[in-house]
C-alpha cells in the first residue's frame, strides 16, 4: 500500500475547490459535454494576477449558494479567449435554471460536465478489481483484490494493512475507491465503495500466514468481479508451486506477469508498528508488485485460478499469502 507521510485533516475541500485547482492546472474533464473547446485557445492562465485572485474570491463566496442549486456539481475560475477572468459553473445537465450571468461583475460560463466520477472508473462503468482502494481514515492506496462471497453476500478482498489500517481499524469503517492517496488533490476524500467487515490481525509476536481483510460493498454500488487487467478470476484455487506462471492486476503496476520462484517461504516483514514474521509464503520476482499493489490477487497465467494474495515486497522479491489460508481465515470463497 502506498501512504502519504501524514493524513491531511483538511478533508472538507469542496468539489468546487478541486475543480478550481484542476481548471487552474488546465485539467480536463472527460465528459462528452466537455466545454474545453471554448476555453482551449485562451492565453496563459496566471493564478497570481490581481483580477484572477479577485475572481477566485468571488467564486469562493458564491460557491455554497451555487452548489445548493439542483444540477450544479462544482465551480472554478478560468479565463476566456481574451484573457479575462470567468467563473466556471459545472453542471450535470444543460439548461440548469437560476444560474447568474455574472458574480461581482465577473462573467460566468457554464460547463456541462455531466455527473463527475472518480478516475478509477473512467466512463462511469462498474468498479473493477485490481484498482485503487483505501481506508477513509488514512491517506493511502492499495488494491481491491477480488470479489469473495460468504453466506450469499459479496465482499471485496484485500489486505489488513489496506482495509484495516494494520489492526487499528474498527469494523464498519468506511472504505473508499480510489484510496485517498489517488485523490486530486492528493488526500482529498474519495467516494465510498464499502465498509470494513472483517480482518485477520497481524501478530508481531508469533508467526503469521495471512494479511487479509474483507469489506462489504455499499448498497447500490456498481461493481464487477472482472479485473482491470482484462480477465476474471476463476472460483477454483490452485496451490503455489515453484515455476508456476502467474499474473496479477494492481493499482500501481497494473497487469504484470511472473513465475513463482520459491514456496514455503518464511519472511520477516517491516510494518509501521514493527516486524512481523510470515510463514508458508509465496515468492515472485521483485517487479511483480510495486508499492500500492498490496491486496492484488495472484492468479495462474492460464486459467486465472487464484493462487495468492500479494502483500509485501522489497527491491528484489515480492511476497504473497497462499490463497487457501486467506479464504479459510475469513470464511469466504472466490465468487
Amino acid at each position: 500500500m502506498r501512504r502519504s507521510t501524514r493524513l491531511s485533516l483538511a478533508l472538507v475541500l469542496t468539489a468546487a475547490a478541486a475543480l478550481a485547482f484542476g481548471c487552474g492546472q488546465q485539467g480536463r474533464l472527460t465528459s462528452p459535454n466537455d466545454h474545453a473547446s471554448a476555453l482551449s485557445a485562451r492565453p496563459a492562465f496566471d493564478p497570481s494576477s490581481v483580477r484572477v485572485v479577485a475572481a477566485m474570491a468571488s467564486q469562493d463566496r458564491a460557491t455554497p449558494a451555487l452548489l445548493a442549486l439542483s444540477g450544479v456539481v462544482g465551480t472554478g475560475t478560468s479565463i476566456d479567449a481574451a484573457g479575462d477572468p470567468v467563473i466556471v459553473v459545472y453542471t450535470e445537465r444543460a439548461r440548469v435554471a437560476n444560474l447568474p450571468e455574472a458574480i461581482d461583475g465577473v462573467p460566468t460560463t457554464v460547463v456541462v460536465s455531466g455527473t463527475v466520477v472518480p478516475y478509477a472508473r473512467p466512463g462511469g462503468g462498474p468498479l473493477q478489481m485490481g484498482t485503487s482502494t483505501g481506508n477513509d481514515l488514512e491517506c493511502a492506496a492499495g488494491t481491491l483484490g477480488c470479489v469473495v462471497v460468504k453466506g450469499g453476500v459479496d465482499y471485496f478482498l484485500s489486505n489488513n494493512h489496506v482495509f484495516a489500517r494494520e489492526n487499528a481499524a474498527s469494523l464498519g469503517e468506511r472504505i473508499d475507491a480510489p484510496g485517498r492517496y489517488d485523490a486530486h488533490p492528493i488526500c482529498n476524500q474519495t467516494p465510498q465503495c464499502a465498509n470494513l467487515s472483517q480482518f485477520q490481525a497481524v501478530s508481531f509476536s508469533s508467526n503469521n500466514t495471512v494479511d487479509c481483510a474483507i469489506a462489504r460493498p455499499i448498497s447500490g454500488l456498481n461493481y464487477s468481479a472482472a479485473e482491470a487487467g482484462g480477465y476474471t478470476p476463476a472460483s477454483t484455487t490452485v496451490a503455489a508451486a515453484v515455476g508456476l506462471a502467474v499474473k496479477k492486476t494492481g493499482r500501481t503496476s497494473g497487469l504484470t506477469h511472473g513465475t513463482i520462484e520459491a514456496i514455503n517461504v518464511t519472511i520477516r516483514v517491516q510494518y509501521t508498528d514493527g516486524i512481523a514474521t510470515f510463514v508458508n509464503q509465496i515468492q515472485t520476482p521483485g517487479n511483480f508488485i510495486r508499492s500500492g499493489d498490496s491486496g492484488s490477487l495472484m492468479v495462474t497465467e492460464t486459467g486465472n485460478n487464484p493462487v495468492g494474495l500479494c502483500f509485501a515486497g522489497g527491491s528484489g522479491a515480492s511476497f504473497a499469502n497462499p490463497i487457501g489460508p486467506v479464504l479459510q481465515a475469513l470464511g469466504v470463497a472466490i465468487k
Binding site: M1, R2, R3, A140, G142, N159, H161, D211, E261, A262, I267, R268, V269, Q270, Y271, A276, G286, I289, R290, S291, G292, D293, S294, F311, A312, G313, G314, S315, G316, A317, S318, F319
Partner: peptide
Amino acid sequence: VRASGEVTAPPR
C-alpha cells in the same frame, strides 16, 4: 542466496 531488499508491507 537472493537479495530481497528491505521487505515491507506496504512495499515501498
